[in-house]
């Protein structure tokens, strides 16, 4: 076919040392888009756990939600913990802004504060597990409680690893006012983890 004539002029060149630069057909950067789509996927993982929560608490409807066997959820401590985690989102945002304005000192301080706040949250959460007095093996409500908070805890851990790397790199002098994608992408993940916690806290502890 005549259209093939076009390709006839296209000669295979083995000495070519790389692909031609790809056309950028969207304003969104690939890494950012990938992270956003990945977060959709993550939301669905939580969705499945919330489905379990819904079925066991609402559909099966046996007995009342906590306190079970006299053991209640520590709403107040978890509430304080929630505040800690949310404030870490603000410090992270502050750090990013500082970086964009070129203030490296504030950027580093913000990253350290964010990391410490996140670590505190995780520590309090583990402490809660130790003292809460029931196990996931005891009853389905315990299973759901540990399932949801544990899933979220795993996400906090992953987020902390990412933030930790960003923090270390911040001290090594990486990133700049122009080159801050490496902070933004883990940052989006961290904000997602925070927002998810608000949902978990509301449904599991408060409602």
């Amino acid at each position: 076919m005549e259209a093939a004539a076009i390709s006839a002029s296209h000669v295979h060149d083995d000495h070519h040392h790389g692909p031609p630069p790809a056309n950028r057909s969207s304003r969104v950067e690939p890494a950012l888009l990938g992270m956003l789509l990945f977060i959709i996927s993550e939301i669905m993982v939580f969705g499945a756990f919330f489905t379990a929560y819904f079925f066991i608490r609402v559909v099966a409807d046996e007995g009342t939600w906590f306190p079970v066997d006299g053991k209640d959820l520590p709403k107040l401590i978890a509430g304080v913990n929630t505040a800690i985690l949310i404030s870490s989102s603000f410090t992270l945002h502050w750090a990013e802004n500082a970086l964009k304005l070129g203030n490296r000192r504030a950027f580093r301080a913000g990253m350290v504060a964010t990391f410490l706040l996140g670590a505190t949250f995780l520590f309090v959460q583990i402490n809660e597990y130790v003292h809460i007095g029931f196990s996931p093996q005891d009853h389905a409500y315990g299973t759901v409680f540990y399932g949801l908070t544990g899933l979220h805890g795993a996400h906090v851990t992953i987020g902390l690893v990412l933030l930790g790397m960003v923090t270390i790199r911040a001290f090594r002098g990486h990133f700049s006012a122009e080159e801050h994608r490496g902070v933004e992408v883990p940052g989006i993940y961290w904000h997602f983890v925070d927002v998810m916690w608000i949902v978990v806290y509301t449904t599991v502890y408060i409602l």
Partner: peptide, 12 residues
């Protein structure tokens, strides 16, 4: 030993 599907302990 979780109880997601253990009807005896309130699972579904």
């Amino acid at each position: 030993g979780f109880n997601f599907f253990n009807a005896a302990k309130g699972g579904d």
